[in-house]
Design a protein around this nucleic acid. Structure first.
Lengths: 241, 241
DNA sequence: GATTTTTCATTTGTCAGACATTTAATTGTC
DNA sequence: GACAATTAAATGTCTGACAAATGAAAAATC
């Protein structure tokens, strides 16, 4: 019979040990780990096993390796970009693999996005407003593909999120917004639906400009409802086909 | 001179190729990858290199491996728990490594948490309210350690978040709440500050009970301001020491 | 003496081959 | 038909080797 809980492999165990050292601060950013040969000795395993453990950590951006003399594995400085990329991968897979209804995903995404409106209205700068207006212009091009429209839509919302002037908030929200893109790409945007969306984007920018949080929230709520409608019509069309 | 952009290793390249196959749907959940020997042949590399690539994917919970005949690497079903664990690790490291001010992290966390209040008030059930009350009782024990108080605090907020009845939202919010725990653990909670926090927790439960979103939001805002005050006093005490 | 080149030790990246272990299917036995 | 032994396929691990990168030290050159 198969073990229900297979014992973790040596490489997984070693990876976990080093991971704790990093997460709990016993290894600091920039610190160099012992060489693979030394780690192999310390843990009483072969170099191949140590390497597999290190690759696991590298996959999480916890360490980076450099070749050559005085090279080795170093505790990596996790940048916002790396962290965001990881979060987007994880979130995208989670949405794609769990038969989550479009409505639930959308509800979560807009609920989260609304959490930045108050700060964004308070701190909005001309630069971010200009970015949003540029994206609105892009979205208005009549010969734009659905994918390009979606991409610009994501860029617009990213600008809205960044406008709140809080990097940590941006990181979390970027993950939730970008992970929705594959789901959004299912939707075919007609000229009419694009016009509606663009109108709501304009309303968001206008609201930010006069720092009217309530109107921004209203526009986002309308956008949420409209997006869910679009998503449901896609599903209905698929069901009858 | 050192290459500014070192070329990616073979194992990283192979891992990326398989990752795209999974993320873009060419490999579906439950699919079995070719055996390590076959993959080695296909990519023209050794088995060791393939194994390093597979360990990278395993570290991201993209695949799982089974030993024995008809075993191998299978595309993993990413569960909410696995996804959350990964997000917490990434977010915790991001907060710990980037010299983020307590205030910015706190602002983001409470802004995000407020995004669940409307849904939570609408959908709150007795079960979740009971969990929150239990945690409040735990927090009221006079001989509780600071760590245990923090852990119960996280459990309380997790219940609040789950109360919104949207799994996707829970996933995102759990990440932002749990990642704050190491920062919160820096704070020494006096009897007086615990009493204040518990009062606000009671106000949150009371607000949910009568579905009064505004009062829950107010309590969370007060909690945010108070937490920031506590954090700043810790930093001040450290500076003068 | 200063500069350039060469050598060298260290370390990661990769390979080949081997053996151990796990597991399900097959075969043999009663 | 039930149970035990065998077998094949696959991952997990080890060993030893070589290639390639890289910085430091040593040697050669001016």
């Amino acid at each position: 019979m198969k073990n229900q809980t297979a014992p973790p492999s040596l490489s997984a165990t070693i990876a976990d040990a080093i991971r704790s050292d990093i997460v709990e601060g016993r290894l600091l950013v920039g610190d160099r780990l012992p060489s693979e040969a030394e780690l192999a000795d310390q843990h009483g395993v072969s170099r191949a096993t140590v390497r597999e453990a290190l690759k696991r950590l590298a996959a999480q951006s916890l360490i980076r390796t450099e070749r050559g003399a005085f090279g080795g594995a170093f505790v990596n400085h996790l940048s916002y970009d790396e962290a965001r990329a990881q979060q987007v991968t994880t979130s995208t897979l989670l949405l794609g693999m769990n038969a989550i209804s479009f409505q639930v995903a959308c509800e979560a995404r807009y609920a989260l996005e609304r959490s930045c409106t108050a700060l964004a209205a308070e701190r909005r700068t001309e630069a971010f407003l200009a970015t949003m207006r540029t994206e609105i212009t892009t979205q208005s091009a009549p010969d734009l593909s659905d994918e390009a429209f979606c991409a610009s839509d994501v860029a617009f919302h990213r600008a809205l999120v960044d406008c709140a002037g809080n990097e940590v908030l941006s990181y979390h929200l970027a993950g939730s917004v970008e992970a929705m893109q594959p789901l959004m790409n299912m939707i075919t945007f007609t000229a009419r639906s694009r016009a509606e969306i663009i109108d709501l984007h304009r309303a968001i920018v206008a609201g930010l400009e006069i720092r009217d949080v309530a109107s921004v929230d209203r526009a986002l709520a309308t956008l949420e409802a409209y997006t869910i409608t679009l998503g449901q019509s896609v599903l209905k069309a698929r069901a009858t086909r």
